[in-house]
Computed example of a mutant assay.
Amino acid sequence: MDFRQLRYFVAIVEEGSISAASRKVHIAQPALTRQIHALEAALGGSLFERGAKGIALTVTGKALYEEAKQLLETRERIMARITALGQGITGKVAVGVTVSHLWVPEIKQVLSGFRDSYPQVALEVYPLLSGPQSEKLKDGSIDAGFLYMGDEIPDYLRTRLFHKDNLVLAVPENSPLVDSPPDKVHQLNRYNFVWGPRSSSPVYYDKLLAYLHQQDFYPKVVQIGADNVTILSLVAAGLGISIVPGDCKWISPPGVSFIDMPELARCDMSVSFAWNTHNHSPALQNFINTVLDGCHTQQPSSC
């Protein structure tokens, strides 16, 4: 007994005759009859009573009909589920996004575009700083991420430059720097700064300080904020000023003004998209394709 024979059997019952069933399942009537005889032989009993008025189900046939319908329906559900998983139509994708970039339009567009294209995939988005993201990409806790990447890319990761950004000066909105911004970064040495810890994003932190030191600037740090959201809140409270990525304007609380400075604008602080190459999930591949379609460039990231 196989599913094909069960399908033929159910067709005969529902169509009322072998000839009608043969047309429905697209098989010649003699071949259909042979399949039903084989099914009866496997079960050890007749399924139909054949008389002058046509065919009718035996007790065995009635019992098999109910079971066969359930088996065929279950098979269809299983096949549909497995096919959907294999095509990435269902499943789960866990994605990390740096706190500063959750509201960046390009990332919002990618997330909403993927949701529209694959509504049955569970898309889990985690606000994570670049340091924790790197660890979770390594151990497989997340499948992909938007983060700051260094020049040396681990073997288990693939990356693409996703979004270009640079640095800006963040000050309280009532700061005199709003009306009289400095020409050079080193002129900020006398101000109190709100800064972030290196552990939150080592790549960003090291690159930021290396560039600022080249400009003869060494921040006088009086307050530490765990992330850029906290840093901007402390700036808004008047506890100092800070240098942050330009995309922080999307997460800024009221009371902060952003000042563009030529020297800060020359420091590339672009965000990369990265994914673990050991993860072969079809749903993840569909997410990767969605992201790459929206990338500004397809070249490997070097930031």
Rank of each mutant, 00 (worst) to 15 (best):
T290N: 12
M261T: 05
V271F: 13
L232E: 03
S134I: 10
V171A: 03
V99K: 10
P219K: 07
L39Q: 00
E76M: 09
V178N: 13
A41T: 12
M1Y: 00
E14Y: 02
L129F: 14
R7T: 02
I231W: 01
M269K: 04
A52C: 07
D151L: 01
N189L: 10
R23L: 11
P30I: 14
L208Q: 07
L64H: 04
V95C: 09
G44T: 02
K108R: 15
R266P: 02
I36L: 10
A31K: 09
F9L: 14
V104I: 12
Q215I: 09
A265P: 01
E66H: 03
V13M: 02
C295W: 06
L169R: 01
D260L: 03
D183V: 05
P182D: 12
Q120V: 13
M79D: 01
D143W: 09
F146L: 07
Q133P: 10
L177H: 00
Q70L: 12
S272G: 10
E40K: 00
A274M: 08
S270Q: 11
S180E: 13
G150P: 07
T297L: 07
H280M: 11
T60Y: 02
N166F: 01
T58S: 06
N192V: 12
G196F: 03
G44E: 02
T83C: 03
P119D: 10
A122L: 06
P253R: 01
T83H: 04
R81A: 12
V291T: 02
Q223W: 12
R23A: 13
T33L: 12
V10K: 08
V221S: 11
E14K: 04
V25Y: 02
S130A: 13
G88H: 03
H296P: 01
G238V: 10
F273S: 05
A11P: 04
P30N: 13
P253H: 01
T60N: 02
P127I: 14
E135V: 12
S112H: 14
L64W: 02
E73H: 01
H101R: 05
G45A: 05
L161K: 08
A94E: 06
R23P: 11
S257R: 15
H101A: 12
K164H: 11
S272P: 00
V291S: 01
C295N: 13
S117Q: 14
R81D: 07
D151Q: 02
L102P: 01
Y118A: 11
A38S: 12
L64D: 00
A210M: 03
P181A: 08
D151G: 00
S252H: 04
N289D: 15
K92L: 05
F217C: 15
M261Q: 06
A42N: 15
L157S: 09
S46F: 06
Q29N: 08
D2P: 00
P176Q: 14
L239V: 08
N276V: 10
Y218M: 09
V10E: 06
P119F: 10
D139L: 04
